[in-house]
């Protein structure tokens, strides 16, 4: 077993008022592995991630985490958000420093900011405002901010879905490298199956609402050896799509009915 954090989801269910969105979810994200959650729209992927990160209290069940955290970890379970969640009144460096300021000395904070900006290729943009950056660059800042706290577990909520296709492909490769290098346990929510097969060690397929675990697919090939046009990965993507397709169509019809 690698050092790191194990996240165990035990019989988790959740309801918003009278609406049951998750039911009987039991999963384990192993230390250092990437768990990808996929499923049709509205199946509760982001809700489950919120519960796993302690941002939502489950209606049923519990989530436990156990294992080693990096010695200089400042926030064990750390999110990367779909909408970047950057403070527009802080520069790139300021946004990263936000999560370090009250916890590290001024010198240590500056050093760590410089380190993660270099790691994510943002050094030249340290003094830029978020409004001056493209979507891809903003998400890099989100990643830099997450890495700055030396997380034991990264929770990524559709981090690439707000980006254009080209930027998404470029960032996906960078994600794979950064996640491999950091070695943190990662839970990644996406509706994009290409991302799922590129990053996931275990891909959890959720059914339509109320979300339940339909299948868990393991991909043993190391992240560094996976390529976008890999026939095995493309076949797996097709297999995942076949699992989800019918549920996705029904979920879409339910959304249209609900909006009428």
């Amino acid at each position: 077993m690698t050092d790191g954090l194990r996240l165990t989801v035990d019989g988790v269910g959740h309801r918003y008022g009278g609406l049951q969105v998750l039911h009987g979810i039991s999963l384990t994200a192993e230390p250092g592995e990437v768990m990808v959650l996929v499923g049709p729209s509205g199946c509760g992927k982001s809700t489950l991630l919120g519960i796993m990160g302690g941002m939502l209290a489950p209606s049923e069940g519990a989530v436990r985490c156990a294992g080693d955290v990096p010695p200089d970890c400042l926030n064990a379970l750390t999110y990367v958000f779909q909408d970047f969640s950057l403070l527009p009144w802080r520069t790139v460096a300021g946004n990263v420093a936000l999560v370090l300021e009250d916890r590290l000395s001024r010198t240590a904070c500056a050093a760590r900011v410089a380190e993660v900006l270099a790691l994510t290729g943002l050094t030249d943009f340290a003094t830029a405002w978020p409004r001056q950056l493209s979507g891809g660059m903003r998400q890099r800042v989100g990643i830099a901010r997450a890495l700055a706290v030396r997380p034991a577990c990264l929770l990524l909520d559709e981090p690439l879905s707000a980006l254009d296709a080209q930027t998404r492909d470029l960032l996906l490769e960078e994600f794979a490298s950064l996640i491999t290098a950091a070695g943190t346990t990662t839970v990644y929510v996406t509706h994009n199956l290409a991302e799922a097969v590129r990053l996931g060690h275990q891909i959890v397929v959720l059914s339509r609402r109320p979300g339940q675990v339909r299948d868990v697919v393991r991909v043993d090939r190391p992240l560094a050896e996976r390529r976008a046009a890999d026939p095995d990965l493309m076949a797996l993507e097709q297999r995942l799509w076949r699992m989800i397709r019918d549920d996705a169509a029904v979920a879409e019809r339910e959304r249209i009915d609900a909006s009428d």
């Binding site: 969640s85 403070l87 999560v99």
Partner: peptide, 23 residues
């Protein structure tokens, strides 16, 4: 979302008010 971001990074209540809510 910004407040949730602050909470997810474990910022204190005071820090969230001072660094996120007030600005």
């Amino acid at each position: 979302g910004l407040i949730r971001m602050g909470q997810s990074f474990g910022l204190s209540h005071t820090a969230i008010i001072r660094k996120i809510v007030l600005p």
